[in-house]
Simulated scan of single mutants.
Amino acid sequence: MRDPRVVGQGVPHRRVHFHDPEAPTASVVTPSVFVSVRNERGQLLLVRRCDSGTWELPGGRVDVGESAVAAALRETVEETGVRVRITGLVGLFTDPAHVIESAGDETRQQFVVCFHAWLISGEPRPDLHETSYAAWMDPIDIAALPMEPGAHRLIRHALSGASDPHLD
């Protein structure tokens, strides 16, 4: 039986390329959403991926027929068990030098809409499919966590306190 807390144990892998000159050429642009959820203590909700063991904001792909906001709400509940209210926009992240190779044959350029949100209800719990851990983190502790550069970038902008959304 696979233990979802152990990285790489029967879980399809992906490779993230962030400004890597050796990155393959993307064949598709995939709209995705991520959500910066804060609680009343100012902590940020993060998830640890099953496939890589790295930490990131909850999120994922926007399904056909789904709005970005609906996808953000769905992904947050699926990956963390937490219900949220979207309160604003962290930014739009469309860097063509951020390429992801999926376990299959897809190589995609991310097109990310990142939202701010507040907790409505629920306690963090992983889905044990995509996420092996879900937790509230104090912003001061986040820098020590293993994460991909793209995830670090989203979190940095989410915590920046900027009044205008990031656009690229």
Rank of each mutant, 00 (worst) to 15 (best):
C50D: 04
F115W: 01
P126C: 02
R108K: 12
V112Y: 13
S27D: 15
P124E: 03
R49M: 04
I120Q: 05
H116C: 07
G60L: 04
R156T: 15
A117F: 05
V29N: 11
R108G: 04
S121M: 05
G8M: 09
I155S: 07
P12E: 10
R85C: 07
R125F: 00
V11M: 01
H19I: 00
S163A: 06
C114H: 05
T30W: 15
A72H: 06
V62T: 09
R38C: 11
G88D: 12
H157F: 09
A144Y: 12
P139T: 10
A71I: 04
A144F: 14
L57C: 07
S163L: 11
V28T: 13
E66C: 12
R74P: 00
F18G: 03
S67R: 08
H152I: 09
H13F: 10
T131I: 02
V47H: 03
S121N: 13
R48L: 08
E75F: 04
H17G: 02
W136R: 01
L159I: 13
P31E: 02
G88S: 06
I142Y: 05
G81W: 00
R156F: 13
Y133G: 03
V47C: 11
L45W: 13
R153D: 02
V84H: 03
E148S: 14
H116S: 08
L154T: 08
E101C: 04
G60Y: 01
C50Q: 07
V69T: 12
A23W: 01
D168W: 01
E40Q: 13
A117Y: 04
H157L: 10
V37P: 05
D141E: 14
G59P: 03
T30F: 15
P21T: 12
H166D: 11
H129V: 08
W55P: 15
I155D: 12
S121C: 12
P165L: 11
P24T: 05
A143F: 14
A134F: 01
V69N: 07
E78K: 02
T25R: 15
A103W: 14
T76M: 07
T30D: 10
P12A: 03
R5N: 10
F93Q: 11
R49F: 03
T30S: 11
W118R: 06
R85T: 06
Q43I: 04
G60E: 10
T107L: 10
D95V: 03
V33I: 05
A158W: 00
V33S: 11
A135H: 03
V16I: 14
P31H: 14
H152P: 06
D164R: 11
Y133D: 14
F93V: 08
F18H: 06
D63G: 03
P31D: 03
E22V: 02
F18T: 12
G88V: 07
E40M: 09
P124R: 07
R15T: 14
S32Q: 15
A72K: 04
I120V: 14
T107Q: 07
V90F: 12
V84M: 02
R85M: 08
W118D: 08
P149E: 14
G65K: 10
Y133N: 08
T25C: 12
